[in-house]
Amino acid sequence: MNKQDSIISKRQKLHAVRVLRDRIFVVGFGLAVIIGILGLAALLFDVLVDGLPFMNINFLTSYASRKAEHSGILAPLAGTIWIVGMTALFTIPIGVGTAIYLEEFASKNRINRLIELNIANLAGVPSVIYGLLGLALFVQFLFNGSRNVTAGALTMTLLILPIVVIASQEAIKAVPSSYRHAAYAMGANRWQVVKAIVLPQAIPGMMSGIILALSRAIGESAPILIISSLVWVTFIPTSPDSKFTVLPLQIFTWISQPQHSFRGIAAAAIIVLLIVLLSMNGIAIWIRSKYQSRPDQ
């Protein structure tokens, strides 16, 4: 009896230890989440308190000024939209195309593995290096010294291409090969399989990667400082050859001004940047759900 009792109590103790360990980890993970969210909340709160008083229609429709209260973000907002739009235009076909080639068409030989390794490494190169590359390659070589939106967008394309390729590759890898085999069994060729089976399945995952990458492009100021360098612009880019500035550059300039009032409009510009980012994420979620909820899957 006694022996049995001690075994039971030993088991109970072990059980209690396991439960305790479980709780500790749950609390620990919860804390990790809370720290992240609190940081974000504090940041948002700070930006909203500083920036909201300056948010009005004039702020969105006027150009920058030496007087904070007359300043607006029309030029950098338009520049950011141009840059992101054109970057998406360049990045999506090239990035998705690269991923499809590497995953579906390329044989797994040494050269292709080397290419993949290089792409992964490129994702870690500091953005300012891409700025210098863009200055030499696009501004000086391709556009003959013209520091235009296209040069900016192409530079951003180089910057985010590795992220898009890697994310797209992962999305393609996640498509079960049994789907491909079924399509092959029905007589489809490789391109038909990619088009009809792999891509529709992979698009939600690709979209997440593309949007994350474009969000990075929106927030970059270092390469654009090198490509454009302009921080006072009183026109909207009207063609791919226009000069331009972008929101992060304008925010950077305002924050480094000595006058305190500029910090308020910098915060207001950050709010606008966040809204642009959130609406882009919204579009991504919409596209993802559109593809995921199709009845025939």
């Binding site: 235009l89 076909p93 235009n148 296209t150 088009k195 529709p200 791919p240 050859d241």
Partner: peptide, 24 residues
Amino acid sequence: KFSKPAIVFTSLLIVGIIAACGGS
């Protein structure tokens, strides 16, 4: 479903490059 956006993207890309080169 897939080919439409692909065509749009590709054509916009081409238009963009032509416009950029023409403009410079």
